[in-house]
Simulated scan of single mutants.
Amino acid sequence: MQRAMRLLETVAGHEYGAPAKQLARETGLALPTAYHLLRTLVHEGYLRREKGLFFLGEAAERLSSSGAKQKRRSTVADALAHCRDSIGVPVYYAMYREGEIEVMCVSDTPGNPAVEEWADFRETGHAHAIGQCLLSQLDEEARRDHLDRYPVQSLTPYTVRDDRSLLRRLERIRRMEPATERQEYALGTVCAAIPITVGTTAATMALSLPSHQADRLLPAVQRLQREVGRHLGSIALSISI
């Protein structure tokens, strides 16, 4: 296994490919051993051979892509954990992608737990700050398309009542301003979300608090805005996840 990994790493260092003899020499392997391992790696799809030269295959490229994605996710998770600890609240990161609300990462603690997803976040964007913030970044056609697929429904006595009321609210949210909701998704919880736009992708970071701490909501979201400004580069990495 270790010898095969050495071969893969060595091949990866040759953008224009390398012959077996060179790979054997650079890895310190006997030529028959190198040949055997190279044939196995080609058979498994980790390498490909063209005109006597070896290149990384599709399987190795998938591994590389997966590793890069994991690294980006780890970077985003670290940024969220920093915001969580700095402000003392659960922090969420979400994107609007291919017509769906996707919560990409949540960072909380036992003392400050995240909101329980008792109703699918994708289907209830009208009721929570994450969804409202993402929908406010879309154009009118995309908003109406979303609401055609996921109509407004009452989750609590405080939930917005119909599409028209929601659309009016979304229009009032000024560009780059936070969206807030108070007990619209879950009784006993207030939330705020700030927009993050990278290229044409709508994204958001949000926080939640128990409703008896509602007076902390605006100061907390202002701190979150400052933290996002410091970590925007790390957060933007996840756009390509």
Rank of each mutant, 00 (worst) to 15 (best):
A179M: 05
A193E: 12
R174W: 05
H128R: 05
V89P: 04
A193N: 06
V221M: 08
E184R: 15
L37D: 05
P110W: 07
A30V: 04
T156D: 02
Q183D: 09
A186M: 13
G111A: 07
R169T: 14
C105V: 13
Y92D: 03
G57R: 07
L147K: 00
E171M: 09
Q183S: 06
Y158W: 12
G52T: 02
L138H: 02
A60K: 05
T27Q: 00
Q213C: 12
R84K: 11
V91N: 00
R172D: 13
G88V: 06
E50V: 07
G45R: 06
L217R: 03
E50C: 03
T27L: 04
R161P: 10
E15Y: 06
L31C: 06
T156Y: 02
D108A: 13
I239D: 07
L147I: 03
Y92E: 00
T33K: 08
A94E: 07
I101Q: 07
Q132R: 15
L53G: 05
P113F: 10
T159K: 05
L53Y: 06
G131D: 06
P19A: 11
N112F: 14
G57N: 12
R72A: 13
A79G: 07
E100M: 11
P151S: 04
L38M: 01
V76I: 07
G188I: 05
L135Q: 10
L232M: 11
